[in-house]
Design a protein around this nucleic acid. Structure first.
Lengths: 177, 177
DNA sequence: TAGATCTGCGTCAATGCTGTTGCAGCTATG
DNA sequence: CATAGCTGCAACAGCATTGACGCAGATCTA
């Protein structure tokens, strides 16, 4: 079960159009076994998306977004999300079915992200006039970009990557004053 | 010919796995007509990618990356690229075949982007110590994010979007000093 | 007008994927 | 030991897609 989801993630993140046969091979089971557990390819993918969304939610919760100082929460959340999103890139990149539980989770995550950003703004880390929705989108984009990972990033630890993301989000590329 | 490429872009940007039948319908031609011009689905997609890469190259050239002041070039290039990338999102998102002409164009674009950033750094727009390769990736990510376009962005002109991208790239979300 | 070219249409064979089923073997639990 | 549950394997039908033709009609050109 878990093996199937992990195999599916591995294969589909490389080729989103991969066949059930390839997924089964990656999971180390027979194709029919997958069909016995998931009514259809679609059902498998939805389960995959939901499972990944739950892991992402846990990753954010672990960063104590409501209680830790904004600066700290931002960093910890970034580290956790980098790890989860790295392992479930395909599942999390899936367009969430409107009304699905996965979609609800992602919306909730979005709200929670905005909350952290508001706290960061209250701490003068973010400009008063900033459009937090845009800041959130930039943050997501930076996370995504870090995951593409140039060759150099391979042997850099997650903490360093996270620090770079947060720094870029807050200060951009301009000269430090 | 042009109609086929444009139809393919329209359809494939919505569903990358769309059939030749759907592409033909979008292009306003019969499926067999496409097969007469393109030896295979693969050939069509490669042509699409190459065509889009060429348009992107032209968009960058139009921004005078080597002669205009860095600030100006950055803005103009951003505007142009936003327009081209908005219209050819699928084709430009395609992983370029190693060694292909499209890949060469993209590599060249990358180098040209770095050059502009170096000029911006010389003008004190970018921090001395900044890793320009990372800055470039952030720039690409911001471009991509702007194209996803939240509902609000729909009725905002390209100039405003570009200004926001450049501003975020240089200053981030932090407070302005 | 005559010819060349391109198009749409219908049809065809080949291929690959999906989802289902029957059968046999393995394992754990009672 | 016996049984229930799960697995792999093989095979099957159904379906969609790809790529290839031949033919007939339209359009453009010499």
């Amino acid at each position: 079960m878990r093996a199937i989801l992990e195999g599916a993630e591995r294969v589909l993140s490389v080729d989103p159009g991969a066949s059930m046969e390839q997924i089964a091979a990656a999971a180390g089971v027979a194709r029919t076994t997958i069909h016995r557990r998931f009514a259809s390819r679609q059902a498998l993918i939805e389960t995959l998306a939901l499972d990944a969304a739950r892991q992402l939610a846990r990753a954010v919760d672990d960063g104590r977004p409501d209680t830790a100082p904004a600066q700290v929460a931002l960093h910890r959340i970034t580290v956790n999300v980098l790890e989860v999103k790295g392992a479930w890139a395909f599942a999390l990149g899936l367009p969430a079915e409107p009304g699905s539980e996965a979609a609800a989770l992602h919306e909730d995550l979005g709200r929670r992200c905005i909350t952290v950003l508001e706290r960061a703004r209250a701490d003068k880390l973010i400009d008063e006039a900033a459009d937090l929705e845009w800041v959130r989108r930039v943050y997501y984009a930076l996370l995504g970009e870090s995951l593409h990972g140039s060759a150099d990033d391979a042997d850099v630890d997650t903490d360093t990557l996270a620090a770079r993301i947060v720094d870029t989000l807050l200060h951009g590329a301009g000269p430090r004053s």
